[in-house]
Design a protein around this nucleic acid. Structure first.
Lengths: 190, 190
DNA sequence: TGAAAAAATTGATCTATGATAAGAAAAGAC
DNA sequence: GTCTTTTCTTATCATAGATCAATTTTTTCA
C-alpha cells in the first residue's frame, strides 16, 4: 500500500515530522463512481491520490460536464478556486475507479507549513509545476485543433489513457463524444 | 512612482528586509511595443508590473498568436513553464503600453525565500490565487460560447479593457478579430 | 491638419464541430 | 453464457466561427 512517506520523497523528514503530518491527514477510500467533493459544498481539503483515479469537472447551465483534471497516483486534486479562497466548490470530484486518497484540510496544511517550513517550499514547487501545466493547457486549448489536442492528450496522459472512458476524454478536450469518435477513426486510417 | 514597498503590502517587513529585497531586483523600463522576453530565450526572471500593461502570448506553427495573459499594475507575469523548470521560453512577453516592471531572477527569488520565509508564504498565496484564476479560465474556455467569453472578459478585465486593442482581446478569447467584431455588433443591438 | 498606417467592420463563403437519431460493440449483471 | 446497460460509432443535417476580400473608421505623427 502506498503511503505518506512517498508524498514528500526527496525531503528527508525526521520521524517526528512524519508523525506530525500523519496526525493531520486522513485516508479516505472511495468506490468507483463515488463523489469526493460536490459542487456547492465548502471546499476544506486538498487530496493526494494514493491509488486509483479521480476526475474533477464543471457542470454548465445546460448540465453538460467539462473535465478539468484527471488525477492518479502521486497527483494532487481539489477545486483550487474554492480551496484557496474559502468559496463553495464549483467543481465536482468523483472517482472513476476504486480509489484511495489522503485528505489534508486547509487548516492542517497551514499548521504543517508553519511547523515544517520545508514542506511549504515543497508545496510551492508542486504548485509551480501544476501552474506550468495549466499554462500549457490553456495554450493548447487556444491554439490546437481537436485532433491535435487528442494526440497531445495521448502523450501527456499515457499511463491513464487506457482506464479512462472516451466520453471523459472528450469532455476534457472540450468536444463531443461523437467528434472524438470521428477523430479516432481518422487517426486509425493513417 | 509605484515602488517595491507596495508589492508586499500586508507583510510588515523591516527596513533591512526591504533593503535585502531591493538589492535583488531591478527596475526595467519599456517603451510601447518593446519585448521583455522572447520565445526561445532562457527565462530567468519573473516580473512585477509597476505601471503600464504587458501581454504574454504564444505563436503557433501558422504564426498566429494566442494571448495567455495581460498584466497591469500589481500583477506578476512570466513564462511559468519556462521560469520554474529552466526551459527556454515558449511565450513572448511584450509591452502594449509604456511600462515599468521590477525584475526578480529565479536565483534572487530563492535567496529572498531562504532569508525571509514570510515572503515565500506570500508568494505561495499569490500563486494559489493565480492558480485559481487559471482554473477558471480553463473552465470558461471549455464551457462558454465566444460571446459569453467576451462578456466575461469585460467583467474580469474592467480596468484594462479600454487600453487593449480588440485584436488582442480576440487573441485572448481564441477567436478571430472578425468574429469579435460581429459579437460586438450583436451586443450593441441589445 | 492632413496623409499614411493601423484597427475595426462588413459581406460572402467555407469548414470543423455540434445536434440528433439510430445501430453496433463492449462491459456488467444475474 | 445470455440479457441488459453502458459505451462507442456512424450517418445526416445544422451552425458557430473561420477565411477571404473589401471597405470604413480611428490613430498616429509629419
Amino acid at each position: 500500500m502506498k503511503s505518506i512517506t512517498e508524498i514528500f520523497k526527496g525531503l528527508e523528514l525526521t520521524d517526528s515530522e512524519y508523525a506530525f503530518i500523519k496526525e493531520r491527514c486522513q485516508e479516505v477510500a472511495l468506490k468507483k463512481g463515488e463523489v469526493l467533493l460536490r459542487k456547492g459544498q465548502p471546499t476544506l481539503s486538498q487530496y493526494y491520490v494514493l491509488e486509483g483515479c479521480l476526475r474533477s469537472f464543471f457542470e454548465d447551465a445546460q448540465e453538460r460536464d467539462h473535465t478539468l483534471q484527471f488525477a492518479i497516483h502521486d497527483w494532487w486534486i481539489s477545486d483550487y478556486t474554492a480551496f484557496f479562497d474559502g468559496n463553495p466548490a464549483v467543481l465536482t470530484i468523483e472517482s472513476i475507479q476504486k480509489t484511495t486518497v489522503l485528505e489534508f484540510t486547509r487548516k492542517a496544511q497551514i499548521e504543517i507549513f508553519e511547523n515544517i517550513p520545508k514542506v511549504e517550499s515543497f508545496f510551492r514547487e508542486k504548485m509551480e509545476h501544476s501552474f506550468g501545466a495549466f499554462q500549457k493547457r490553456i495554450i493548447n486549448d487556444l491554439s490546437k485543433t481537436a485532433k491535435e489536442k487528442y494526440l497531445d492528450f495521448l502523450q501527456t496522459h499515457k499511463e491513464i489513457e487506457t482506464h479512462i472512458k472516451n466520453y471523459h476524454i472528450a469532455s476534457f478536450l472540450g468536444i463531443t463524444t461523437e467528434s472524438l469518435s470521428r477523430i479516432r477513426r481518422e487517426i486509425a486510417k493513417d
